[in-house]
Design a protein around this nucleic acid. Structure first.
Lengths: 209, 209
DNA sequence: TCACCAACTGACCCATGGTCATATTTTGTC
DNA sequence: GACAAAATATGACCATGGGTCAGTTGGTGA
């Protein structure tokens, strides 16, 4: 009797459906202006039911953020496993992929930037928070691994600290600059893409063997 | 009769007092958990009075953020005007100063990271938003100028794009990584300081003449 | 002394996150 | 099929807090 298993699957499905609905609502109205009633309606559930699956509005948001990280990780994994590319070539492609991600998954990219805002209001013990941290860690490891591959195939200098550099890059990727301050046209004519690419160029020069 | 002038001064003073109170409350309770009633009480005013000086809670927050930028700018101006330092030396000191700022003005530093959150809910026409953008622009110009000084005194490569590099650095400084994701002990043993310093090291290698 | 006006007050409005007693559906048992 | 127990869902309700506004206060200038 796979009743329990089926129920578990259904519960998982409901949860995913709620996140789907939340994405549509949050991405459309913005986190602050979207209400839990909106989400409930979109999910074809009552508000109370939402709270059977998520502790709070913030946690629901973290679930979306986790998805964003998941998408990005999958993209990076593809790069990591690609044959016929040297380490430094993969490293170069990182910037490109990230820009593509920001362009093609703009809403998800933006969700990453509100990590702080939502994270603070979620208990650290939750499953969602844990997955989020795990995804994040994975992404850093992938970047780090790409650098290390470059050191093995001798296209990246041996003395580069792969772990530190990967963290620095990640910080740069998710810096608030690209999407907010920079997008104030008043401030600059450069677009975020420009800046990220230029920054990468300099780093590549610094680490190339 | 300087009555009008005096009144203007007093109004300005009130405004500053409110921001003082708001800092004490927001920095203590956190933006989300602090209420306008708290701020009003701390400022020894009624809630209604706050709204004579600031359009919204978010705008009050932007006023704090503007102060943060102002503090940081003053620090950077000192560096810019320092004699007896070459361009590359000043550039090197930028990282140090920023880390010091983050350590000694942690609350103000954190306020910078919530730019997006508050910015979205403020009309672009407001005086506070304008000053914020201006301070931001100034800081970018200072960083850019430091790089250009290095190019003049030949300690920094001629072909470095000062404007783009300054924006990339600013993005890195205000990335969400340092204070949030990185501070999850689970993820890494490095502290933000480490990462920023290492990143700078690489860049310095790349741009040094 | 008085009219005026800017500064200020705080009771009030209302939107919304979150709760909970109740209702509905599903499941297991006989 | 009947029925109790458990799981799931409902939506009226509550508390909170951002924001408003009719009314008060007190300084100013005539």
């Amino acid at each position: 009797m796979g009743v329990i298993e089926r129920k578990e699957r259904e519960k998982e499905l409901r949860s995913e459906n709620i996140i789907d609905a939340a994405e549509r609502i949050f991405f459309n109205k913005g986190f602050e202006h979207a209400t839990m009633n909106d989400v409930a309606e979109e999910a074809e559930l009552s508000k109370g039911a939402l709270y059977l699956y998520f502790h709070s509005k913030n946690e629901l948001c973290m679930a979306i953020l986790q998805r964003s990280l998941h998408i990005l990780r999958k993209i990076f994994v593809l790069l990591l496993n690609e044959k016929n590319l040297t380490g430094i070539e993969k490293f170069t492609k990182l910037a490109e992929l990230f820009i593509t991600f920001a362009k093609e998954h703009t809403n998800h990219y933006n969700s990453l930037l509100s990590y702080r805002e939502h994270r603070e209001n979620c208990p650290a013990t939750g499953k969602i928070i844990k997955s989020t941290i795990e995804e994040n860690q994975n992404i850093n490891n992938i970047i780090s691994d790409i650098i290390k591959m470059g050191q093995i195939d001798k296209t990246i200098k041996k003395n580069i600290d792969a772990d530190r550099l990967s963290l620095a890059l990640w910080g740069n990727f998710t810096g608030i600059m690209p999407s907010s301050i920079l997008s104030e046209k008043v401030i600059t004519n450069f677009n975020p893409e420009d800046i990220i690419k230029y920054h990468f160029e300099l780093l590549i020069n610094a680490i190339r063997n």
